[in-house]
Nucleic acid binder design. Structure first.
Lengths: 265, 265
DNA sequence: TTGCTCCTCACGTCACGTGAGGTGGC
DNA sequence: TTGCTCCTCACGTCACGTGAGGTGGC
């Protein structure tokens, strides 16, 4: 029979952990002294403790371990539980490997200073109902015309608009003869119009995004950083590039804030 | 300029997280209304938020992120930090892969019922100063003689003893002509004796252990379970087997509790 | 008697999530 | 006026770790 300190040394489990398992009812000492509250463990209890440690190590939370110890679980239930834990663990490994790739990509760039970095984030973008106008433009800069048309239409019909986005459908980042779809998101019904139609921007599960602050013609570095990140992290482009207006500012858009988005897979 | 809900939708970061970053001083809103406490964010703040998200995703704690944002860090400091995170992440991946192997080993046994399982745990065993007596025995069962000799010696000299262990030096689990070293751990000075000498059981970084409860001759199943586990988890034996007495009980050791230990690598 | 061990609170960890209860804004 | 959004507490999460303050056992 062991006092808690000896049992702790025997099993390499901290005294605090043993007390915690006692509190949770997972491992009650074989005997507790009425007067002093001293906990006394028996040698045979090491087996139960080992079972707890094994189950904990599988990733079970302590309050899930109780039922296992009383083993009211059938073999099938156990298999099911193990398969869940297997899946969870695999997914965590994948996540960590992605994280590792990101760290190594950054190191590969020579640990470029934080201040100089352009940060790429990955997010899910929901499908959006939009008013849309699409046209092949001589140059990218001409997209302003499309937005002006949208703005006129919106104002005439007093429509709500939560965000303005242009989709470049070519997929090769060309500057000229670019196939542009200018949109604004809205939940309102869209009255018929000869240029503007109702459309939907599809859901994108994995969208790599960077934010650019400044005039439209200085967007090149952000665009390059985004593509380099996609490449360095082993992704492929998986859809047309989008540019979303976040905020307008300055004269001629000198302080605009836009977000570049590319779907990846 | 965005209210917190709009900024949350824009960035896909929860309102609660944004408020939390505000509390920590990581991302203060561009403007806070004096009267209502409403937080207002500017579009340009998305860049700062993205930087926070990227650093968080590298595994930095929130309170480590502050210095990065102000970028008082040199390129070297950054590299060092990244390398630490790289090492941490690699280690976590290894840990998770070990866990996965364990789960799959269990599943490979057909998800054997919990109650019927013999649980193997891995632990570090410290070096121990021991009194030791070593001899090749006709049969394993004869080890009792060695322990009796140790017990006599111990009592004669009134020595402390914290644990009794036999080391089987052959490394092939033989039943006969077995090279046994019986020991008890003690921190006392050991008086000279013609059979018993002072020795040390070496530190073992990774010791696979199972506990067996019952008479000594029924230990075979525990031993097989241990070896199977070592094999199924891709380890090699890395030293002599030990058997440690945890508790004596019953007549002729019918309720003994012992721990089988094998070093692995 | 002196260390050593044990006891029970109570609070901290980490990045938020989850109400509760109340108020501003359109 | 009615929803909708926002606000600030305050508490919960998870498996213990870390004292604080006090007592039993050899």
């Amino acid at each position: 029979v062991f006092r808690i300190g000896d049992f702790s040394r025997l099993t390499q489990v901290t005294v605090k952990a043993l007390r915690h398992y006692d509190d949770l009812g997972l491992l009650r000492p074989a005997h507790v002294d009425r007067d002093t509250g001293y906990r006394y463990y028996s040698g045979a209890q090491v087996m139960r403790l080992n079972r707890i440690l094994v189950l904990k190590d599988l990733g079970l939370a302590l309050d899930q371990i109780g039922p296992f110890l009383e083993s009211d679980l059938s073999s099938d239930q156990l298999r099911a539980m193990l398969q869940i834990k297997q899946a969870e663990t695999s997914r965590r490994i994948e996540q960590e490997q992605i994280r590792l790739a990101r760290i190594e990509a950054w190191l590969g760039e020579g640990g470029e200073a934080v201040g100089a970095r352009i940060d790429v984030v990955l997010k899910r973008v929901d499908a959006q109902r939009v008013a849309s106008i699409r046209q092949v433009l001589p140059r990218r800069g001409d997209v302003g015309q499309l937005f002006r048309a949208l703005a006129v239409y919106r104002q005439r019909h007093a429509l709500g608009a939560s965000s303005w986005t242009v989709v470049w459908h070519d997929g090769d980042f060309r500057e000229e003869c670019a196939d542009a779809e200018a949109t604004f998101a809205t939940s309102d019904q869209l009255p018929a119009d000869d240029r503007i139609c109702a459309s939907e921007l599809p859901l994108v599960e994995s969208m790599a995004c960077v934010v650019h602050h400044g005039p439209a013609d200085s967007i090149g570095s952000a665009c390059r950083a985004l593509l380099q990140w996609v490449d360095a992290n082993g992704y492929q482009l998986a859809g047309p590039e989008r540019v979303r207006m976040i905020e307008r500012g300055g004269t001629n858009g000198a302080a605009d804030v836009v977000e570049l988005q590319v779907p990846i897979g």
